[in-house]
Design a protein around this nucleic acid. Structure first.
Length: 604
DNA sequence: CTAGGGTTAG
C-alpha cells in the first residue's frame, strides 16, 4: 500500500485503529525484508506530520503512543508538530521524554526544540538546549546555530545571539537576517541597521526577507531618511518586485508621515494585494482619516474584499471623524461578512460608538463579545469616562480585575481620567495609591499629569501643585497645561499667570497659552499687558486655528466656526443648533463670554 | 523531522 494512498484514505476520517491495522499488515513482511521496519517508521512519521498539518494533534499523539518503535525522526516529528501548532509546552515535554528514553537528539531535533523555547520565551530552557547542542556535536549545523540566534534574540539576550552569530564561519542569509530581526524586535533598530550595513559591505547575499526587516528597522526608528536609503538599496538589488518588501516600504512611509511618498509608492506598485491596501488604509487612518475612507471605497471598486484588518482601520477612522452613520454602515458590512467575532475589530467598534456619542451601542458590543482582552475593557472604560459615567468606569475596572485580567498603565489612565471628569476625586486618588502598592504598576509622567488634572478640575489646586513639586519628574508642558486649565476654570488669576509663564517657558509657541494669559490681563483690566501679549502672539508665527465644531445630520457632516452663517449652509442645521442652545439653557448652562468679548475687540 | 519577512485595537 502506497503512503499517498494511505494518507488520502484517512484524510477526512482519521481512524487510528485502521492505520494500526495497516501497519500490522505491513509488519508481516518484517522477517522477510530487512528494510521494512525503517519504512514503517517513515510511514508513521509521515502520518504524524500529516495529522499535525491538518490540526489533528490528538490523533498524532494517539498514533505516536501506539507505535512500538520510535526513532529520532519520529520524536522530532512530534516536537516540531507541537511547536508549529502552538503547543510549545507539550513540545518541550516530548523532548524531555525523548531524552529520558535515551534517544540522542540530532540537528533537526535541536532546532525544533529551540523554536519551542523561543515561543515560550524561556531563556533558561534555551540555554540548556544550547549546552546539549555542544555536547551532541550538533552545534555547528547552520540550522542549529541560526535557531540559537533566533531563540536568544526572542529571549532578549542579544549579546548571546551576537556571540553565536560571530562564531559561525559560513554565515548564510538566514543568520544575518535573524540577527538583524533580533535587534529590531528588541527595540535596538540602530544596531540592526548597522549590521545590515555590514552585511551589504561584506557583500553577503541578501534576499527579500533581509530587506523587509531592514525597512522595518527604519520604521521603528521613525526615520524616513534612513528608510529612503534602504529603499534605494532595495532598488539596487532588484527587489522592487517583491510584494512583501514593497508593502513594508509603504508602511514605512505611512508611519513616518510621508504622505506623498506613500501615495506615490502605492500608485507605482505594479502588483498589489489585500495587505497593500490595508497598509495604506491603516496608514491614512492615522494621518488623514477622511482620506482613508476614500481609499477604502476605491479598494472596493478595485475588486478587493475587505477583511478584519481593513475594517479595524476604517472603523477607527470613523471614530476619529465622529461620523456615526458611516460607522453604522461599516458595522452592517462587518456583520454581513461574519467578521463580528473578531476581537480587535470589536474593540475598534466599542471605541467608535463611544466617540460617536452612542455609548449604549459600545456597551452592547462589549457585553456580546465571546472573549475580551485588556483593550476591550479599557476602550469601554474610556468611553464611559468621556460620557461622564465615572462610576460605571470604576465598576468596570473592578469587574475586570475580578475576571483575572491584570491592569496596565493605560487602564489606570482611563480610570483616573473617568474619575477626573466625574468629580470622583477621592476615588481616583485611591486608585492612584493602589496602582503602586497593590497592582505593582509604576506611575509614569503621564499618570502624574492625570492626577494633577484630577485634583485641578476639582479645584484642589494647592494639592495639584504640591504633587507636581514632589513627583519624581520635572513637570513637563502637559502637567503645567493641566494646572493652567484648572486655574482658569476656577478663576485663580495669580496661579494662571504662574503656570502660563511656565508653559510658555517650556513651549514658547503655544498660542493657546497666550490667549489664556491675555484674557486674564483683560479680565483684570491690565490693557497694556494685554496689548503687548497680543503683539507677541503674532510674532510667534504660530496662528491659532479657529475652534471648529461639527454636527452630523442625515448622513452629512457640517462643520462651522464662530461667525459662520449656518443658515446659508443648511437651514436644518441651523434649526438643530438653535434647539441645542435651548436645551443647554434649560439645563442651566451659562456660557462664559469673558474671552469672547476681547476676541471681538481684537477683530478676530 | 530543521532556521528568517509584510497589515489590526485602548
Amino acid at each position: 500500500m502506497g503512503t499517498a494512498k494511505l494518507l488520502s484514505a484517512i484524510h477526512f476520517r482519521p481512524i487510528p485503529f485502521i492505520v494500526q491495522n495497516s501497519l500490522q499488515k505491513l509488519q508481516i513482511g518484517k522477517t522477510q525484508y530487512k528494510p521494512y521496519p525503517k519504512s514503517l517508521r517513515n510511514l508513521a512519521t509521515d502520518l504524524i506530520k500529516s495529522y499535525f498539518q491538518k490540526g489533528l494533534t490528538e490523533e498524532a499523539h494517539k498514533l505516536f503512543d501506539e507505535m512500538s518503535e520510535r526513532d529520532v525522526v519520529t520524536w522530532t516529528a512530534m516536537i516540531s508538530g507541537y511547536t508549529s501548532s502552538y503547543h510549545h509546552t507539550r513540545a518541550w515535554t516530548v523532548f524531555c521524554d525523548m531524552l529520558r528514553n535515551g534517544v540522542e537528539p540530532n540537528a533537526f531535533t535541536i532546532s525544533s526544540v529551540l523554536k519551542a523555547c523561543k515561543k515560550m520565551k524561556s531563556l533558561s530552557r534555551g540555554t540548556l538546549v544550547h549546552g546539549l547542542a555542544i555536547k551532541t556535536g550538533t552545534k555547528g549545523s547552520l540550522y542549529v546555530d541560526n535557531a540559537l540566534i533566533d531563540m536568544y534574540g526572542s529571549c532578549d539576550s542579544m549579546d548571546d545571539a551576537s556571540m553565536v552569530f560571530e562564531d559561525i564561519n559560513a554565515k548564510n542569509c538566514v543568520s544575518w537576517t535573524t540577527l538583524i530581526a533580533g535587534y529590531t524586535h528588541n527595540g535596538d533598530a540602530y544596531s540592526g541597521l548597522q549590521l545590515f550595513r555590514r552585511m551589504l559591505l561584506e557583500e553577503a547575499e541578501a534576499n527579500p526577507f533581509t530587506f523587509s526587516i531592514a525597512v522595518r528597522a527604519c520604521t521603528s526608528i521613525g526615520s524616513d531618511i534612513l528608510g529612503k536609503l534602504v529603499h534605494a538599496a532595495v532598488i539596487c538589488h532588484g527587489f522592487e518586485s517583491s510584494l512583501p518588501v514593497m508593502n513594508s516600504i509603504l508602511d514605512m512611509y505611512c508611519r513616518c508621515g510621508c504622505t506623498s511618498e506613500a501615495k506615490q509608492i502605492f500608485l507605482e506598485m505594479s502588483q498589489k494585494n489585500l495587505i497593500t491596501w490595508n497598509t495604506l488604509i491603516a496608514g491614512f487612518e492615522r494621518l488623514d482619516s477622511k482620506e482613508s475612507l476614500y481609499i477604502f471605497s476605491q479598494m472596493e471598486s478595485d475588486g478587493f474584499s475587505p477583511n478584519c484588518f481593513t475594517f479595524t482601520s476604517v472603523v477607527a477612522a470613523c471614530a476619529n471623524l465622529a461620523v456615526l452613520y458611516c460607522g453604522q454602515q461599516l458595522h452592517g458590512g462587518i456583520f454581513r461578512r461574519g467578521l463580528n467575532n473578531n476581537l480587535e475589530l470589536s474593540n475598534a467598534l466599542i471605541d467608535m460608538y463611544a466617540k460617536c456619542g452612542s455609548i449604549t451601542d459600545s456597551h452592547k458590543i462589549f457585553s456580546e463579545m465571546s472573549c475580551t482582552n485588556l483593550v476591550s475593557w479599557t476602550s469601554m472604560m474610556i468611553g464611559y469616562g468621556a460620557h461622564g459615567h465615572g462610576k460605571k468606569a470604576v465598576e468596570l475596572f473592578n469587574e475586570m480585575v475580578r475576571s483575572g485580567i491584570k491592569p496596565d498603565k493605560v487602564v489606570f489612565m482611563a480610570v483616573l481620567s473617568a474619575c477626573s471628569h466625574a468629580g470622583l476625586v477621592d476615588e481616583g486618588l485611591r486608585y492612584f495609591r493602589l496602582m503602586k502598592s497593590y497592582y505593582n504598576v509604576t506611575p509614569d509622567q503621564e499618570i502624574y499629569v492625570c492626577v494633577v488634572d484630577l485634583l485641578g478640575r476639582a479645584g484642589r489646586i494647592n494639592e495639584a501643585y504640591q504633587l507636581m513639586e514632589t513627583m519624581p519628574f520635572k513637570p513637563n508642558e502637559a502637567a503645567w497645561v493641566a494646572l493652567l486649565g484648572a486655574c482658569e476654570a476656577h478663576r485663580l488669576p495669580s496661579t494662571v499667570k504662574l503656570s502660563a509663564l511656565k508653559v510658555l517657558d517650556l513651549k514658547p509657541n503655544r498660542v493657546g497659552t497666550y490667549v489664556m494669559l491675555s484674557n486674564l490681563y483683560a479680565a483684570v483690566g491690565k490693557w497694556g499687558s494685554f496689548a503687548n501679549l497680543r503683539k507677541l502672539m503674532r510674532g510667534t508665527g504660530d496662528k491659532k486655528e479657529a475652534a471648529r465644531s461639527w454636527i452630523e445630520l442625515k448622513n452629512q457632516v457640517y462643520s462651522f466656526v464662530v461667525g459662520d452663517n449656518i443658515v446659508f449652509q443648511n437651514g436644518q442645521v441651523h434649526e438643530v443648533l438653535e434647539l441645542l442652545v435651548i436645551h443647554m439653557k434649560e439645563a442651566g448652562y451659562v456660557p462664559n463670554l469673558d474671552s469672547f468679548l476681547h476676541d471681538l475687540e481684537d477683530g478676530t
